[in-house]
């Protein structure tokens, strides 16, 4: 941003190559091919049952792919660091939101399960659909005012 760079001799540079980084097409194609290969790998990985490992592998590959897109296709590798900071920062806020919401909801899941079991019992024998329906309806009707 220093103004002495703006001397007329170099003005042209400013307009052309000075603005934005030009990424060679070859490099883009290489990245594109790598992305397609990674897609293939992530599909192939699902044929091996690794238990919980599967989702971590899938997510790790997705993160690698996303980083490649961001760094090369979106020029982040050559861009101002602050733009990258915004990008990573927004993801961090999503992570924060997920962390709190997930922690909280996993805490009260047992309550929901308990409620469901009792309300299912109140719903009666599932073979007798009619009876169960009426009872559930009645149950919900009486519950409704307190829900407000």
């Amino acid at each position: 941003m220093a103004d002495n760079e703006h001397n007329p001799l170099h003005a042209h540079d400013d307009h052309g190559h000075g603005v934005g980084h030009i990424v060679p097409i070859k490099l883009l194609v290489v990245v594109g091919v790598v992305l397609l290969i990674l897609t293939w790998i992530t599909v192939a990985a699902t044929y091996f049952d690794l238990g919980d490992g599967n989702i971590y592998i899938a997510l790790a590959i997705a993160v690698i792919k996303a980083s490649l897109v961001a760094l090369f296709f979106m020029h982040l590798r050559w861009d101002r660091p602050f733009n990258g900071f915004i990008f990573v920062g927004s993801i961090a806020f999503v992570a924060l939101f997920i962390a709190f919401a997930l922690t909280d909801s996993s805490q009260y899941q047992p309550d929901i399960k308990e409620y469901r079991i009792t309300s299912d019992l109140k719903g009666g024998d599932s073979v007798d659909a009619q009876k169960k329906l009426e009872e559930t309806a009645a149950q919900l009707q009486t519950d409704a005012p307190s829900a407000e």
Binding site: I86, F87, F97, I98, L102
Partner: peptide, 23 residues
């Protein structure tokens, strides 16, 4: 460019809400 990156951040947070639901 900075404006676009900020817009991208809002898009990520918009989808982020759905990712929270998913998680």
């Amino acid at each position: 460019k900075l404006g676009m990156w900020l817009f991208i951040a809002t898009e990520i947070l918009l989808f982020g809400g759905l990712f929270v639901g998913y998680s």
